[in-house]
Each structure stands twice: as C-alpha cells, then as structure tokens.
C-alpha cells in the first residue's frame, strides 16, 4: 500500500511538473514584452515553493497511521 501511495504521489508530481513546464515554456517562448516574463518568474518560484511544501507534508505523512 505504501508503495502504491508513493507511486500515485510520484505520478501527481510528474503531472504537476509537466504542466508547469508547458505553462513556463509558453510564457517565455511566445510572450511579448515584460509581462509574460514576470508571470513566468512568479509562476516558477511559486511552483518550486508549493512543490517543496507538498514534499515536506508527504514525507512527514505516516501512511501506516491510517490503518492503526
């Protein structure tokens, strides 16, 4: 069960970073002017912070405590 949870978590993070890449790529590649670059920077920083927080909570979460 723990392994299944880890797999689901890894898939979620993979989807998150995939979508982050697509948004970041579009903002930096096709954006004209300053605004898309600012959005891209804020988006990337926020994504890293959110991912970090999520990872901390995932690491602290004891999967076995659900069944005790």
């Amino acid at each position: 069960m723990q392994a299944a949870f880890n797999l689901v978590m890894a898939l979620l993070y993979l989807v998150f970073w995939g979508a982050t890449f697509v948004i970041f790529y579009h903002l930096t590649r096709f954006g004209i002017g300053v605004q898309p670059k600012r959005f891209a920077a804020a988006f990337f920083l926020g994504s890293v912070v959110l991912f970090g927080i999520s990872l901390v909570f995932a690491a602290r979460f004891d999967f076995n405590s659900l069944f005790s």
Binding site: L12, L27, P36, F39, S54, F57
Partner: peptide, 30 residues
Amino acid sequence: SYFGLILFLATVYYMALWLFAFYYLAMYTL
C-alpha cells in the same frame, strides 16, 4: 488520524489551483 493526509491533499489541491490560475494568466498575456 487523517491529519497528515489532509495536509498533503491540501497542498495537491493548491498545486492544481496554481496551475489553473497561471493557465488563465498565460492565455491572457499571450
């Protein structure tokens, strides 16, 4: 006993909202 799971799911929820928000902002700016 689900507190840890709730916190983790909340972060996943916020990650999804973050992506949706910037999807709309990207469409606006592009």
